[in-house]
Amino acid sequence: LWQGRGVASSKLWMLEFSAFLERQQDPDTYNKHLFVHIGQSSPSPGDPHLEAVDICQIYDKFPDKQGGLGELFQRGPPDAFFLVKFWADLNTSVEDEAGCFYGVSSQYQSAENMVITCSTKVCSFGKQVVEKVETEYARYEGGRYLYRIHRSPLCEYMVNFLHKLKHLPEPYMMNSVLENFTVLQVVSNRDTQETLLCIAYVFEVSAGAHGAQHHVYRLVKE
Protein backbone atom coordinates (compact mmCIF):
# COMPACT_ATOMS: atom_id res chain seq x y z
CA LEU A 1 0.00 0.00 0.00
CA TRP A 2 2.90 2.33 0.65
CA GLN A 3 4.12 2.03 -2.89
CA GLY A 4 2.83 4.86 -5.04
CA ARG A 5 1.33 6.65 -2.02
CA GLY A 6 4.40 7.66 -0.03
CA VAL A 7 8.17 7.67 -0.03
CA ALA A 8 8.48 3.93 -0.54
CA SER A 9 10.10 1.61 -3.05
CA SER A 10 9.51 -2.12 -3.19
CA LYS A 11 12.43 -2.56 -0.76
CA LEU A 12 12.31 0.36 1.66
CA TRP A 13 9.69 2.66 3.20
CA MET A 14 10.50 6.03 4.69
CA LEU A 15 8.42 6.28 7.86
CA GLU A 16 9.68 9.57 9.20
CA PHE A 17 12.00 12.41 8.33
CA SER A 18 12.59 15.61 10.26
CA ALA A 19 15.12 18.40 10.59
CA PHE A 20 14.76 20.21 13.89
CA LEU A 21 16.11 22.65 16.42
CA GLU A 22 15.96 21.63 20.04
CA ARG A 23 16.56 23.94 22.95
CA GLN A 24 16.71 23.11 26.61
CA GLN A 25 14.42 25.54 28.38
CA ASP A 26 15.14 24.26 31.87
CA PRO A 27 16.60 20.99 33.17
CA ASP A 28 13.34 19.10 32.51
CA THR A 29 11.91 20.89 29.47
CA TYR A 30 13.00 20.78 25.86
CA ASN A 31 11.49 22.85 23.07
CA LYS A 32 11.57 21.19 19.67
CA HIS A 33 10.99 23.14 16.49
CA LEU A 34 10.57 21.22 13.22
CA PHE A 35 12.03 22.98 10.17
CA VAL A 36 10.80 20.22 7.89
CA HIS A 37 8.91 17.05 8.65
CA ILE A 38 7.51 13.97 6.96
CA GLY A 39 5.55 11.68 9.20
CA GLN A 40 3.76 9.09 7.19
CA SER A 41 0.67 7.53 8.66
CA SER A 42 -0.29 4.09 7.40
CA PRO A 43 -1.86 4.44 3.97
CA SER A 44 -5.27 3.08 3.10
CA PRO A 45 -6.45 1.79 -0.29
CA GLY A 46 -8.46 4.96 -0.92
CA ASP A 47 -5.49 7.30 -0.55
CA PRO A 48 -4.54 9.09 -3.77
CA HIS A 49 -1.50 8.01 -5.73
CA LEU A 50 1.46 10.33 -5.99
CA GLU A 51 1.66 12.72 -8.91
CA ALA A 52 4.63 12.30 -11.26
CA VAL A 53 7.32 14.84 -12.11
CA ASP A 54 9.58 14.44 -15.13
CA ILE A 55 13.11 14.16 -13.78
CA CYS A 56 14.34 16.35 -16.65
CA GLN A 57 12.62 19.30 -14.99
CA ILE A 58 14.92 19.14 -11.96
CA TYR A 59 18.17 17.56 -13.26
CA ASP A 60 20.12 20.81 -13.14
CA LYS A 61 19.31 21.35 -9.47
CA PHE A 62 21.39 18.31 -8.49
CA PRO A 63 24.90 16.99 -9.16
CA ASP A 64 25.20 15.48 -12.63
CA LYS A 65 28.72 14.07 -12.48
CA GLN A 66 29.60 10.51 -11.50
CA GLY A 67 26.99 9.17 -9.11
CA GLY A 68 24.71 12.11 -9.92
CA LEU A 69 20.94 11.99 -10.15
CA GLY A 70 20.86 11.15 -13.87
CA GLU A 71 23.24 8.23 -13.56
CA LEU A 72 21.42 6.91 -10.50
CA PHE A 73 18.07 7.10 -12.27
CA GLN A 74 19.42 5.25 -15.31
CA ARG A 75 20.60 2.47 -13.02
CA GLY A 76 17.21 2.33 -11.28
CA PRO A 77 15.05 0.82 -9.99
CA PRO A 78 12.56 3.45 -11.21
CA ASP A 79 10.22 2.94 -8.27
CA ALA A 80 12.87 4.24 -5.84
CA PHE A 81 12.96 7.87 -7.04
CA PHE A 82 11.03 10.70 -5.40
CA LEU A 83 10.83 14.46 -5.32
CA VAL A 84 9.81 16.12 -2.05
CA LYS A 85 8.80 19.77 -2.02
CA PHE A 86 9.11 21.14 1.49
CA TRP A 87 7.53 24.30 2.83
CA ALA A 88 9.95 24.85 5.68
CA ASP A 89 8.92 26.46 8.95
CA LEU A 90 11.56 29.02 9.91
CA ASN A 91 9.55 30.69 12.68
CA THR A 92 11.79 29.44 15.43
CA SER A 93 11.58 32.51 17.67
CA VAL A 94 14.86 31.43 19.22
CA GLU A 95 17.07 34.45 19.73
CA ASP A 96 19.69 33.03 22.01
CA GLU A 97 21.12 29.98 20.27
CA ALA A 98 23.29 28.89 23.18
CA GLY A 99 22.48 25.33 24.14
CA CYS A 100 20.58 24.67 20.90
CA PHE A 101 20.88 21.39 19.06
CA TYR A 102 20.28 21.19 15.29
CA GLY A 103 19.53 17.65 14.20
CA VAL A 104 18.02 15.34 11.61
CA SER A 105 16.14 12.15 12.38
CA SER A 106 14.76 9.63 9.95
CA GLN A 107 13.30 6.16 10.11
CA TYR A 108 12.82 3.44 7.49
CA GLN A 109 11.16 0.05 7.31
CA SER A 110 11.82 -3.01 5.20
CA ALA A 111 10.83 -6.64 4.91
CA GLU A 112 14.52 -7.43 4.44
CA ASN A 113 17.42 -7.48 6.83
CA MET A 114 20.08 -5.26 5.23
CA VAL A 115 22.81 -2.85 6.12
CA ILE A 116 21.87 0.50 4.63
CA THR A 117 24.04 3.44 3.64
CA CYS A 118 22.43 6.86 3.66
CA SER A 119 24.18 9.61 1.69
CA THR A 120 22.89 13.16 2.11
CA LYS A 121 24.27 15.78 -0.28
CA VAL A 122 23.59 19.47 0.19
CA CYS A 123 23.71 21.29 -3.15
CA SER A 124 24.01 24.93 -4.11
CA PHE A 125 23.24 25.83 -7.73
CA GLY A 126 23.27 22.11 -8.48
CA LYS A 127 26.76 21.54 -7.12
CA GLN A 128 27.46 19.47 -4.04
CA VAL A 129 28.81 21.50 -1.13
CA VAL A 130 28.75 18.95 1.68
CA GLU A 131 27.96 15.26 2.01
CA LYS A 132 27.22 13.11 5.01
CA VAL A 133 27.31 9.32 4.77
CA GLU A 134 25.77 7.19 7.50
CA THR A 135 25.49 3.44 7.89
CA GLU A 136 22.64 1.81 9.75
CA TYR A 137 21.89 -1.74 10.81
CA ALA A 138 18.41 -3.21 11.05
CA ARG A 139 16.46 -3.78 14.23
CA TYR A 140 13.84 -6.52 14.04
CA GLU A 141 10.56 -5.38 15.52
CA GLY A 142 6.98 -6.55 15.02
CA GLY A 143 7.77 -8.71 12.01
CA ARG A 144 9.66 -6.02 10.11
CA TYR A 145 13.13 -4.50 9.98
CA LEU A 146 13.49 -0.93 11.18
CA TYR A 147 16.38 1.42 10.43
CA ARG A 148 16.66 4.54 12.53
CA ILE A 149 18.99 7.49 12.09
CA HIS A 150 18.38 9.26 15.37
CA ARG A 151 19.36 12.87 16.11
CA SER A 152 22.14 13.08 13.56
CA PRO A 153 23.76 16.51 14.11
CA LEU A 154 23.28 19.02 11.30
CA CYS A 155 26.61 20.03 9.80
CA GLU A 156 28.12 23.46 10.35
CA TYR A 157 27.34 24.53 6.77
CA MET A 158 23.65 23.83 7.30
CA VAL A 159 23.49 25.50 10.71
CA ASN A 160 25.05 28.66 9.26
CA PHE A 161 22.80 28.47 6.21
CA LEU A 162 19.65 28.22 8.34
CA HIS A 163 20.84 30.99 10.60
CA LYS A 164 21.39 33.38 7.69
CA LEU A 165 18.21 32.31 5.93
CA LYS A 166 15.89 32.94 8.84
CA HIS A 167 17.35 36.41 9.36
CA LEU A 168 16.45 37.58 5.86
CA PRO A 169 13.76 40.24 6.20
CA GLU A 170 11.24 39.02 3.61
CA PRO A 171 9.91 35.56 2.64
CA TYR A 172 10.46 36.27 -1.07
CA MET A 173 14.16 36.75 -0.32
CA MET A 174 14.27 33.41 1.51
CA ASN A 175 12.54 31.72 -1.43
CA SER A 176 14.96 33.33 -3.83
CA VAL A 177 17.86 31.75 -1.89
CA LEU A 178 16.04 28.42 -1.57
CA GLU A 179 15.45 28.27 -5.35
CA ASN A 180 19.11 27.28 -5.67
CA PHE A 181 19.37 25.14 -2.56
CA THR A 182 18.58 21.42 -2.78
CA VAL A 183 19.32 18.19 -0.94
CA LEU A 184 19.80 14.77 -2.51
CA GLN A 185 19.40 11.77 -0.24
CA VAL A 186 20.33 8.30 -1.48
CA VAL A 187 19.69 5.23 0.63
CA SER A 188 21.37 2.12 -0.70
CA ASN A 189 22.05 -1.46 0.30
CA ARG A 190 25.65 -1.35 1.53
CA ASP A 191 26.45 -4.86 0.36
CA THR A 192 24.83 -4.88 -3.08
CA GLN A 193 25.02 -1.11 -3.81
CA GLU A 194 21.40 -1.28 -4.96
CA THR A 195 19.52 2.02 -4.67
CA LEU A 196 16.70 1.57 -2.18
CA LEU A 197 15.45 5.16 -2.11
CA CYS A 198 16.59 8.31 -3.85
CA ILE A 199 14.90 11.49 -2.68
CA ALA A 200 15.42 14.92 -4.23
CA TYR A 201 14.40 17.69 -1.83
CA VAL A 202 13.47 21.23 -2.92
CA PHE A 203 12.30 24.02 -0.65
CA GLU A 204 10.21 27.11 -0.08
CA VAL A 205 9.36 28.79 3.19
CA SER A 206 5.98 28.13 4.72
CA ALA A 207 3.60 31.07 4.46
CA GLY A 208 1.20 29.67 7.06
CA ALA A 209 1.33 29.47 10.81
CA HIS A 210 0.75 25.73 10.96
CA GLY A 211 4.28 24.44 10.69
CA ALA A 212 6.18 22.69 7.96
CA GLN A 213 4.30 21.15 5.03
CA HIS A 214 5.29 18.96 2.09
CA HIS A 215 4.24 17.32 -1.15
CA VAL A 216 5.74 14.06 -2.44
CA TYR A 217 6.06 13.21 -6.15
CA ARG A 218 7.31 10.21 -8.09
CA LEU A 219 10.22 11.02 -10.37
CA VAL A 220 9.76 9.60 -13.87
CA LYS A 221 11.39 9.99 -17.26
CA GLU A 222 8.87 11.02 -19.88
Binding site: E51, V53, D54, C56, Q57, I58, Y59, D60, K85, W87, E179, V202, E204, S206, A207, G208, H210, G211, Q213, H214, H215, Y217
Partner: peptide, 24 residues
Protein backbone atom coordinates in the same frame (compact mmCIF):
# COMPACT_ATOMS: atom_id res chain seq x y z
CA UNK B 1 16.86 18.39 -22.38
CA UNK B 2 18.09 20.14 -19.28
CA UNK B 3 16.09 23.21 -18.41
CA UNK B 4 19.33 25.06 -17.54
CA UNK B 5 18.80 28.08 -15.36
CA UNK B 6 15.11 28.35 -16.12
CA UNK B 7 13.28 29.60 -13.01
CA UNK B 8 11.31 26.85 -11.28
CA UNK B 9 8.09 28.77 -11.91
CA UNK B 10 8.59 28.35 -15.66
CA UNK B 11 9.12 24.60 -15.57
CA UNK B 12 6.58 21.90 -16.26
CA UNK B 13 5.61 21.01 -12.71
CA UNK B 14 2.24 19.98 -11.27
CA UNK B 15 0.02 22.82 -10.00
CA UNK B 16 0.27 21.32 -6.52
CA UNK B 17 3.99 22.10 -6.55
CA UNK B 18 3.09 25.73 -5.85
CA UNK B 19 0.26 25.14 -3.42
CA UNK B 20 1.28 24.83 0.20
CA UNK B 21 -0.84 22.02 1.64
CA UNK B 22 -3.26 22.82 4.41
CA UNK B 23 -2.41 21.19 7.70
CA UNK B 24 -4.34 18.00 8.34
Amino acid sequence: AKPGQVPMRKRQLPASFWEEPRPT
